[in-house]
Design a protein around this nucleic acid. Sequence first.
DNA 1: CACTCGTGGGG
DNA 2: TCCCCAAGAGT
Length: 356
Amino acid sequence: MSDSFARKLLAWYDKNGRHDLPWHHDRNPYRVWVSEIMLQQTQVTTVIPYFEAFMRRFPNVAALAEAPVDDVLSHWSGLGYYARARNLHKAAKQIVSDHGGEFPADQEQLESLTGIGRSTAAAILAQAFQTRATILDGNVKRVLARYHAVPGWPGKTSVLNRLWKCAEQHTPEERIRDYTQAIMDLGAMVCTRSRPACDVCPLNSDCEAKARGEQKLYPGSKPKKEKPEKTTWMLILEDREGRILLERRPPSGIWGGLWSLPELDPAYQPEELPDACEQAYGYDCSQPELADGFRHTFSHYHLHIQPARLNVANTSQVADNGNHQWVYRDEALTLGLPAPIRTILTSSQSSPQEQT
DNA sequence: CACTCGTGGGG
DNA sequence: TCCCCAAGAGT
């Protein structure tokens, strides 16, 4: 069956699509894979410089598998969702050990690799192997929800399953690589979340939402929930030379695997800082100098971060548990420090830098 | 299934 | 300032 959906889409793509993104050149499975992981929940313009630096440092699967995980994490610093970096590294080792260093050209085997799900596996198949497979990312969800007027929030399983069926029905037999790129480009450039450019859309004559004048209703919006307010203490431990003590965070959870300021258990009440600090780190901190706290909004909660500046006389007091390390302030800025922590460090300096 | 992970951009 | 959300996947 010659679905006019794919035909019209491809004709539009040939003239108007994005053909010059960094991962479009030298399109091998490794480059497609890394780009797909980086692009998960992350915008193209953010990814581009990270992708290029990552490829210079880890040009192929073997290089990635051999590298220390810290090296991988530092190249991810600032991108967010750091589990992606740990999973990427783990999967590289799996590919070397279980697949002889070559990507499997098979949906099921790809999905068995850590960090590769249904949509990413399909993207690798379509773009690197030119094998028919169906993707469903945020762009495709939006295009299809409008085209077929699929009601409901795509985060809900029933809605998601409907969209997967739509996506599979439209997937053509020919030009699968171009089609996969085309439907994402349409979502990113024409069928945008706000103010879609329906007048230049190649599918506008068949779009159900457009026919009803209800583009704004699709896709259905997420049910809103109240974000809880959390409070935590982050300690700026400083020695006489101005070095700051950083702590390696556990591999899971927020900023997993990155170096950050030591954080007190959020269960401690702010009023109890000195006691809590002494329990956690075993030294006197009865007279901390408190900097101004600030509030940072995360996806699912608000976090009130309260920094406490402490001068530490003897570094061995706190650096002996294997999870702590002294680094210079300048080095700290180049490690895996996420935005709120960078803010704390820079705001504690006399000359703010690295702020744009 | 609901929840978690992050950072930057747009309305 | 505050909200939603973006080339999703793991738990």
